[in-house]
């Protein structure tokens, strides 16, 4: 078996890379695929928290590289889904503890026995980014509809374009707020895609449920009623090649909104 290695990156921090990695990984595992998540954010690891696995980590990626354990020993199985496992980052080391060649080797080994290897990339464009990208053949660029995030995403897309091994780069637009877009206070999905000019793989609405799901250490894809969870499940399906329409994020209009519309139209006529 030769699995697919997908790096999840963004440039800017705090746009939801780790949340995205945890959710896409969980969603793919729920579909029945064998998935390994690699946290490459050395010194600032968080993927273990989002999956609720922080108490189970014995060995990290640095232990594997420095041959203190076997690769298999360092993989932590998810509590709910045996298809999903995590290779955690070392919390006490920095990014120089690993180089691109070593990470590439780990990805090569992991893809032999898994359908998907998802690499959670650290923020920035330095060594950490170069490491995370090294073994990947596909990339998902996460951004939010904010100027700073989009600018950094553009930079990352430019860098990914120079990597021959990366054959596909797709955009995941996170923390979209439909009511702000409706009032023209936030850039729309079309605006962002028009600027970055790469294919879209998902639109994730802002969802307060993300906070509670992080608190509990349980990815939001496990919540069948969450809109963000649904959006992440759709991303997983698109990765698997299914054509899934993007969620219609326009909330049904309330009574007051309708009345406002009527008055706005009347006013426009006058």
């Amino acid at each position: 078996m030769t699995g697919r290695v997908i790096v999840i990156t963004s440039g800017k921090g705090g746009v939801g890379k780790t949340t995205t990695s945890a959710n896409i990984g969980t969603a793919l595992a729920k579909e029945g695929y064998k998935v390994v998540l690699i946290d490459t954010d050395l010194g600032l690891r968080n993927l273990d928290l989002l999956l609720g696995l922080e108490n189970r980590i014995v060995y990290t990626i640095v232990d594997v590289i420095e041959e203190r354990c076997k690769l298999k020993q360092a993989l932590v199985k998810d509590k709910k889904n045996p298809n999903l496992s995590l290779l955690a980052a070392a919390q006490t080391r920095d990014k120089s503890a690993v180089n691109a060649e070593q990470l590439k080797e780990i990805c090569e080994k992991l893809k032999e026995k898994n359908d998907f290897v998802l690499v959670d990339c650290p923020a920035g464009i330095e060594q950490g980014f170069q490491n995370a990208v090294a073994g990947a053949s596909e990339a998902i660029v996460v951004t939010t509809p904010e100027m700073s995030a989009i600018r950094d995403a553009d930079r990352i897309i430019g860098l990914l374009n120079t990597k021959e091994e990366i054959t596909s780069t797709r955009l995941l637009l996170n923390r979209v707020r439909p009511n702000l877009i409706k009032n023209n206070e936030m850039m729309s999905v079309d605006d962002v895609v028009g600027i970055l000019e790469i294919p879209l793989i998902g639109i994730i609405p802002e969802d307060t449920g993300i906070i509670t799901s992080t608190n509990k250490g349980e990815p939001i894809v496990n919540d069948e009623n969450s809109l963000a969870g649904q959006a992440y499940r759709n991303v997983a399906k698109r990765i698997l090649g299914e054509e899934v329409p993007f969620l219609d994020l326009d909330e049904p209009k309330g009574f007051m909104a309708k009345i406002k519309d009527v008055f706005a139209k009347l006013k426009a006529k006058v």
Binding site: M147, I150, I181, N184, S188
Partner: peptide
């Protein structure tokens, strides 16, 4: 506000 952001960007 949104179009300012788009054109600045």
């Amino acid at each position: 506000s949104k179009s300012v952001a788009t054109s600045r960007l």
